[in-house]
């Protein structure tokens, strides 16, 4: 029983990280039909931004302040990744709308450049980010221990998802994004600047990847190829959830996280992956468009 509960917790914690990564992908993929292979590198940028904030705290601030670096690291990771994402959209992606394969290759190339840039600046070996004392250790409930860092990640992701829902469904910017997602020509015809919607939405998705990178520093060491490990799983989440659907992404991320850790628990790491892929392939046979999809009723 205890084993199952802690596995479930691990599953939710893995799922929540996947969710944070997939949120950004879901919007860019859903909104612009761009397969952004550099998304993993935006995660990496967020992680290194956290590393830089931490290093600055160690170098310039008294030790008693160190604990609080991670509070500042969240906006720092978001803004750095968002800025680089915005630049990426402006320099590369905007020229390739409507050409999914070209944009896939171009963003893959951009990803390699970003990886190499990280190597040049921070060195090839992994660096460790020291978890603040506040988040080390575990909380014990009924003799099951829950690591504090994982609890923090789940809370962080919950906050991000709530913000996303609010932004998407309650603000005028969100309304514009949804309109462009559904019918780009008509959105432009009512006077929405689709160019501006594209670039801000892309930056927003990149920013969330940055926050995911920040969360990953609490789990293990970080390196230039940090993001590549997660990108495949994140794409699986987007496809299973249904392209462009927030709610589908949330359910798919948590589902894949729980199934992944569950299968690994009952078999072993590689067998667990095989089973997970098998389940996803079967699921997509049953629902090729994912859990949810935008269905429209035009002429009837």
């Amino acid at each position: 029983m205890e084993g199952i509960i802690s596995q479930l917790f691990n599953g939710i914690s893995l799922g929540s990280i996947l969710l944070l990564i997939a949120l950004g992908l879901a919007i860019t993929f859903g909104l612009m039909n761009v397969i952004n292979m550099a998304h993993g590198e935006l995660i990496m940028i967020g992680a290194y931004a956290t590393y830089v904030v931490q290093s600055l705290f160690i170098d310039y601030l008294p030790e008693s302040m160190f604990n609080w670096y991670f509070i500042l690291a969240v906006p720092a990771a978001f803004l750095t990744a968002a800025l680089i994402g915005w630049l990426l959209e402006w320099t590369v992606i905007r020229h390739l709308y409507g050409r999914p394969l070209d944009s896939l290759l171009a963003t893959f190339g951009a990803g390699l450049i970003l990886q190499q840039a990280a190597r040049s600046i921070f060195g090839a070996p992994n660096v460790g980010v020291q978890s603040p004392a506040l988040l080390s250790g575990a909380v014990e409930i009924f003799s099951i221990s829950f690591p504090k860092s994982r609890i923090f990640i789940i809370l962080l992701v919950t906050a991000c998802v709530l913000f996303m829902f609010y932004y998407f469904y309650k603000t005028s910017n969100g309304r514009r994004i949804r309109a462009v997602m559904q019918n780009r020509d008509m959105a432009s015809s009512v006077g929405i600047s689709t160019r501006q919607v594209d670039s801000t939405t892309f930056a927003l998705g990149a920013g969330f990847a940055g926050i995911a990178g920040m969360a990953l520093t609490l789990i293990g060491p970080i390196g230039p190829t940090l993001g590549t490990a997660y990108i495949i799983d994140a794409f699986m989440v987007v496809v299973v959830g249904g392209v462009g659907m927030l709610l589908g992404t949330v359910i798919a991320a948590l589902g894949i996280g729980v199934f992944n850790t569950g299968f690994e628990y009952f078999t072993n790491a590689s067998m667990g992956r095989v089973l997970l892929f098998a389940v996803i392939i079967l699921f997509l046979q049953w629902r090729p468009n994912g859990l949810f999809n935008l269905s429209t009723r035009k002429l009837d």
Binding site: R175, R176, Q182, A187, I192, K298, L299
Partner: peptide, 30 residues
């Protein structure tokens, strides 16, 4: 089109092309 719209053109297309996953009020707000 967005620039023409802001200059004072409005378009009711064949097949309506309303935003079907948005509410009626949100469509009007757009």
């Amino acid at each position: 089109p967005a620039k023409r719209a802001r200059a004072g053109m409005s378009y009711v297309p064949q097949g309506r092309e309303i935003f079907s996953s948005l509410t009626v009020e949100e469509n009007l707000l757009l």
